[in-house]
Nucleic acid binder design. Structure first.
Length: 809
DNA sequence: GCGGCGCTTATACC
DNA sequence: ACCGGTATAAGCGCCGC
């Protein structure tokens, strides 16, 4: 029989000792379909150069006799055949070794340690990835599948055993999404119980609870017990039959919580289409997988794909929903949990439902991104929503190697990883030493995707790298580290990256002509992939790790930017700043600037391209806050600009740092605005004086003096007990669970006795106490504005009242 | 008890 | 452990006096 099919979820399984893959997706009518397909279980044995035909045949025979026994499974080599392949861009003779079960590939490969064998490869690729690589049944593409109906015990409309796969291209697909969210009595599932579970889908909203029945809210369903509630949750999910079950932080909280509570209630959480429970796996952070339904933790995808371009200071559902949807969480006062009245419960149900609603809306909003990631990288939705960018880069390469007839490199293991991690840092970007001051009429140039374009233009990668000086090779001077050499024959890494950049350009152009969320998402996915490629080269866990290549990228980028600075200087411009891929200089004629840009571009190698970032009306650079008063220099990575439309761009200043209090951030931002907009430092000074006065009169609102700092590790692991660690300890004493990554909020209070350390004055927001005038004046307010005003020769310390001056007796 | 300096820590820039 | 290096700055930790 023949059907049309779009793959959504993949899972491998064994049958009669052999590997199979089960793919869940939809057909053109929206029916849920299951495919079962076999897997070619094989790996590669790369032979040393110059072996005779008979020698190779002898090795094949030896390999064909290998047997491996594992508990409950026997694997043997089923057949071998010899191919001309490429490895690291070079032609090799390689034996393709087919075995009974791919899980034993490593063990079989270990036995092939003959002297004629150079390398063994492709035994360490996840089965589903390998399946997609070989059969090209890629996620979210449409296929015409021919196959026989297969008996199954899955909750699907049809199951086929695959005979033929034919790609019939891309078509739009809107997945059925169901969002869920739980509220619990305690953070730890071991001590708590689930109070309610909300579900939100298209024309679908429910809150399941066993706590209090509401007659006012038609979406609330009340059950006798937690057990019954969980059972109904499973039933409802199955009835809704979503393609995607989405939560926010659900890998870390909701799904494991429900699993633990199901166990405590001695019931099965059989959410899977195979009626099995979710499984939790994959490394450092657990991932909850449900068979046949793609469980997506929106938080994790946002973290890798969105966070670097987001303004939000945290990735909480509240902040993220606010930024991406313009909708916030509902308010609920958790302190009243112990003494809830009916209205409080109704409020709580609303709150819980709204979280699912936000999660659902976020899922709909970011679906184009998830979908484009999955299609471009060719990994399942489950994986691309959880993998980091290094895995994404690597998987994208793996899925493109076949075109180069290339055998994949192995993944590094313990010793190799340790070796790589022990390597010293190589020299990175160039940052120009700015001279403090206020500047007018500034141009910013920047290189478009500089590091990626350096990789492509100079062909830098593992497969093109050589330690030795060879003919026709590019030599890169790495200073103290010696020299690196790179072939001029294009390597697959550069070619793949160049394609990424090209495709990005193409869809960005298309997007500008005819905007659509899909095109934007596609362009963004290519951009992220390109931007992560350089980091990938220097990442210790990478298959195609190449430290000399990464160091060469940085070295050539430095050379490029320094040469360009020279060119701009030679044209008579004063260069005032530069960081990595951008150059700022003063101008008086835009036409001349553009002509110079054109001229520079004509001489740049390969795909390297210098772009006009913008013209700015005014900009300010400040001094570094050095302790020794001897040599004062300008601060790098700290400046503010205003463009011709009056839009400010603030970099590095306290204003953009979330670990400074709002008082300081707002004041500094206003000071910068007055100075850049009006060039009026006297007015700015007046504002500062006013603020100081208000501060001294204790008229500053409490929320403006709160300091928020992230806890980046468990409290016990801090070697230095800083104020935010004390705040964390105080929270813990109060019974608030301390989670890595959480922001702790505190303020610095007055103390009865004179205390030397800041941490001795730390108080939580709800603790009684006045803010410490001396601290907020001398450690917060003054430091944030003194170097800005100093540019105008104004010494704020002289302005501030003598009694509160820093260290003045 | 205090000054100085190195270290730890968080966060930003690109 | 889950992309790289460069940079600022605060506040502790600890030494010496």
């Amino acid at each position: 029989m023949k059907i049309e099919f779009i793959p959504l979820d993949y899972e491998s399984f064994d049958f009669n000792d052999k590997n199979f893959v089960r793919i869940i997706g939809r057909n053109e009518k929206g029916k849920r379909i299951c495919l079962v397909d076999s897997i070619d279980a094989y790996f590669w044995v790369i032979l040393k150069e110059g072996l005779s035909k008979s020698k190779i045949e002898e090795i094949q025979k030896k390999i064909e006799n290998i047997r491996v026994e594992k508990p409950g499974r026997k694997t043997h080599v089923e057949k071998t055949s010899v191919f001309n392949k490429n490895y690291m861009g070079k032609e090799v003779k390689a034996i393709k070794v087919f075995i009974t079960n791919y899980k034993d590939a490593h063990d079989v490969a270990d036995k092939i340690d003959y002297s004629e064998v150079d390398k063994r490869r492709a035994y360490d690729i996840p089965i589903v990835t390998k399946y997609i690589m070989d059969k090209k049944l890629c996620p979210l593409n449409w296929y015409e599948i021919e196959g026989e109906i297969e008996a199954n015990d899955l909750d699907v409309d049809l199951c086929l055993r695959v005979d033929k796969i034919k790609n019939i291209g891309m078509r739009e697909f809107t997945p059925k999404i169901l969002a869920y969210d739980i509220e619990a009595s305690e953070f730890e599932a071991e001590n708590g119980e689930i109070l309610m579970i909300s579900l939100y889908g298209t024309d679908y909203k429910k809150v399941l609870t066993w706590k209090r029945c509401s007659k006012k809210q038609d979406f609330v369903e009340c059950f006798k017990s937690e057990e019954e509630m969980i059972e109904k949750f499973v039933k409802y999910v199955k009835e809704y039959s979503p393609d995607l079950l989405v939560g926010y932080f659900s890998d870390g909280f909701d799904l494991p919580y429900i699993k633990i509570r199901a166990e405590a209630n001695k019931i099965k959480l059989n959410l899977g289409l195979d009626n099995k429970q979710p499984s939790f796996s994959r490394g450092r952070i657990v991932s909850g997988k449900i068979a046949g339904i793609v469980h997506v933790d929106i938080y994790r995808f946002i973290e890798t794909a969105y966070s670097q371009y987001m303004q939000s200071e945290t990735l909480s559902l509240d902040d993220v929903a606010n930024e991406l949807l313009g909708n916030k969480k509902k308010k609920f006062d958790f302190s009243k949990l112990g003494k809830m009245k009916e209205d409080d419960w109704n409020e709580f149900f609303e709150y819980n439902l709204h979280d699912s609603y936000l999660t659902f809306s976020l899922a709909e909003k970011i679906w184009p991104d998830i979908s484009e990631f999955s299609k471009i990288i060719q990994e399942p939705i489950f994986d691309v929503t959880r993998d980091g960018m290094s895995s994404n880069v690597e998987n994208h390469i793996l899925h493109n190697l076949e075109r180069f007839n290339e055998i994949p490199e192995k993944r590094p293991i313990h010793d190799e990883i340790e070796k790589r991690r022990a390597m010293p840092k190589y020299e990175g970007a160039f940052v120009f030493q700015p001279i403090p001051g206020i500047y007018e009429n500034i141009t910013f140039f920047d290189f478009t995707s500089m590091y990626s374009s350096v990789i492509v233009s100079y062909n830098l990668s593992l497969s093109t790298y050589s330690t030795e000086k060879e003919k026709e090779f590019l030599e890169v001077d790495l200073g103290k580290e010696g020299k690196a050499h790179f072939s001029k024959n294009k390597g697959f890494f550069s070619i793949i990256l160049e394609e990424i950049i090209e495709k990005r350009k193409k869809c960005k152009k298309e997007y500008n002509e005819k905007p659509s969320p899909i095109l934007k998402a596609r362009s963004n996915a290519y951009k992220l992939l390109a931007n992560a490629s350089y980091g990938y080269l220097g990442f210790f866990g990478a298959r195609y790790y190449c430290r000399p290549a990464a160091a060469s990228v940085a070295a050539l980028a430095r050379k490029s930017i320094i040469d360009t600075i020279e060119k701009i200087k030679n044209k008579g411009h004063r260069v005032i700043y530069s960081d990595t891929d951008s150059i700022a200089f003063l101008y008086d004629d835009k036409k001349e600037v553009l002509a110079m840009l054109k001229d520079i571009n004509e001489r740049l190698p390969g795909i390297m391209e210098l772009d006009l970032e913008d013209f700015y009306k005014r900009g300010i650079f400040v001094l570094k806050k050095t302790k020794d008063k001897g040599e004062q220099t300008g601060a790098k990575k700290k400046y503010a600009l205003i463009d011709e439309k009056g839009k400010m761009k603030i970099k590095g200043f306290e204003t953009v740092r979330r670990d400074w209090c709002t008082l300081v951030r707002e004041l500094q931002s206003k000071v910068l605005e007055i100075i850049l907009m009006e060039g009026n430092e006297k007015k700015a000074l007046e504002l500062v004086k006013e603020s100081i006065k208000k501060l001294k009169e204790r008229k500053i609102e409490k929320e403006k003096i709160m300091i928020r700092t992230q806890l980046k590790k468990p409290l016990s692991e801090y070697k230095s007990i800083t104020p935010h660690v004390i705040a964390g300890q105080k929270l813990k004493e109060k019974g608030v669970p301390i989670k890595i990554g959480m922001l702790v909020e505190y303020f610095i209070s007055e103390t009865r006795e004179r205390k030397a350390l800041v941490r001795e004055k730390v108080k939580l927001p709800d603790e009684k106490g006045e803010y410490n005038i001396d601290y907020y004046l001398n450690n917060q307010l003054i430091p944030s504005v003194e170097n800005i005003l100093d540019v105008f020769g104004v010494k704020i310390q002289d302005v501030a009242d003598g009694s509160s001056q820093k260290k003045l007796f």
